[in-house]
Nucleic acid binder design. Sequence first.
RNA 1: GGCGUGGUAGCCAAGUGGUAAGGCAAGGCUCUGCAAAAGCUUUAUUCGUCGGUUCGAUUCCGACCCACGCCUCCA
Length: 475
Amino acid sequence: MTLGIFNTLTRKKDELHPKDGKTFGMYCCGPTVYGPAHIGNFRTFCAQDVLRRTLELTGIKVMHVRNITDVDDKTIRESRKLGQTLTEFTRRWEDKFHKDCDALNLLKPQVEPRATEHIKEQLDMIIKLVEKGYAYATADGSVYFKIAADLDYGKLSGLEVKNLETQTVNSAGDANNADEYARENVSDFALWKGRKPEDGDNFWKSPWGEGRPGWHIECSAMAQKYLGDSFDLHGGGIDLCFPHHENEIAQSESATGVSPCVRYWFHSAHLMVEGEKMSKSLGNLYTLDDLTAKGYSPNQIRFTLISGHYRQQLNFTFKGLEDAKSAIAKLEKSTLQTLQNLGISEAEFKTFIAPKANFENSVFEAAFAAMCDDLNVPKALGEIFSAFAKSKETPLTKADLEALGGLLYALGLKLFEREEKTEIEIPAEVTELAQKRLEAKQAKDYALADTLRKQAADLGWIITDTKTGFEIKKA
RNA sequence: GGCGUGGUAGCCAAGUGGUAAGGCAAGGCUCUGCAAAAGCUUUAUUCGUCGGUUCGAUUCCGACCCACGCCUCCA
């Protein structure tokens, strides 16, 4: 089965095929490393991860490139504030980003190029654009892309240049014509930024003097270097559709003359938090650490982030995280039951979680079909639960479990990941209460038994009955 | 102003021109001294509002209401 994905460029569902018939080239806009990434960022990275995993499950080899933006206004400003070099500062957040990605079970891209290590490639492209008349330098040593020279500009986002030009106020309410440099047109965007005092030591030499690259050019230059002039897929958050991706197309196609530079455009919707737009000012901008500190596991967070369709705005709530925990537990329970029926160990089952599976005549065929239909994760999850419900009449086979393993690979969900057991010391006092309660119960003195259980509860411990005795758990 | 998305049970969320997947929560039952856990089970005559097309619309069309996104560096 082939994977069909909604393509922003064609505005319809297109089947994904590698251009060269072998390896699918996929470029994703990575993080700007000036602080910890938030769950909104991770929603996008999770969606891209599910895309990659599903492609692999359909038998396609993927070359995944995701950049690190380690130079821009924010990284420069924050590093200088701390008196650190740009590299010192950005590496710290890059490392943090990678730790978070691992926790969320995001597959590592094969290549993770840094913007600062590809200045030459970016300059080469800018030079080419100037030579071809698509860009011009200004008096302050900056270089701008000339939108008027690109007749195709706007084809991805569907925005018309004339509307851009008449736009006087941007979404933040700021004047849009605040033209600090001598741009020919307010919509022209920076390819190279002339050095300013606030840049500190962060500058590179160019034919137009010292400065640093603009934001959009890094993705064009690095994607081209690692994937070629025309590659398969480019992904990012929906907000990047315009201007970032529109500008990338303008840069890449103008520089190379090759069109399309990208065949499929993959955009994921944003998330809301408790029904509100996520923003720093509302205090609802959560990082992974914020949530794990509250006791939510990364697996649970991942489940929540992918449980809504990627093109649908997701309302991220704490109730949703709780729901995810219960849903995962149910999935584990059903799976475990099947494993026991078939005499398969958890360890063996884990080897089934791999990008290979045969879904033909499997009860999980519908779930796989849902994944292949524009990554319909909510439907796929529904089909998985339905399959387990049906298994009461027709027990699942080993082949079914292998198919389930394939789906779990695509979703990137982990089962049977025991939370690392921190050995909790049960106070002797509590054990004694439990022992006394057991005796009281055996003597049918239930009033006393209940009192003792209550006492333990007051101390923060829960006593439950088992077949042979009792069990003590932390409340 | 331009472009776009969405409104489905208490919450989350699929879906289809032929009468509403799934998850969570809640209720009932079994088990249990009672709980917990576990198992079984029930829960939308209805899909924002009003019209239209149709034998039939939640699904198509129109209008309206509401929410949200993008319109220069925010995933």
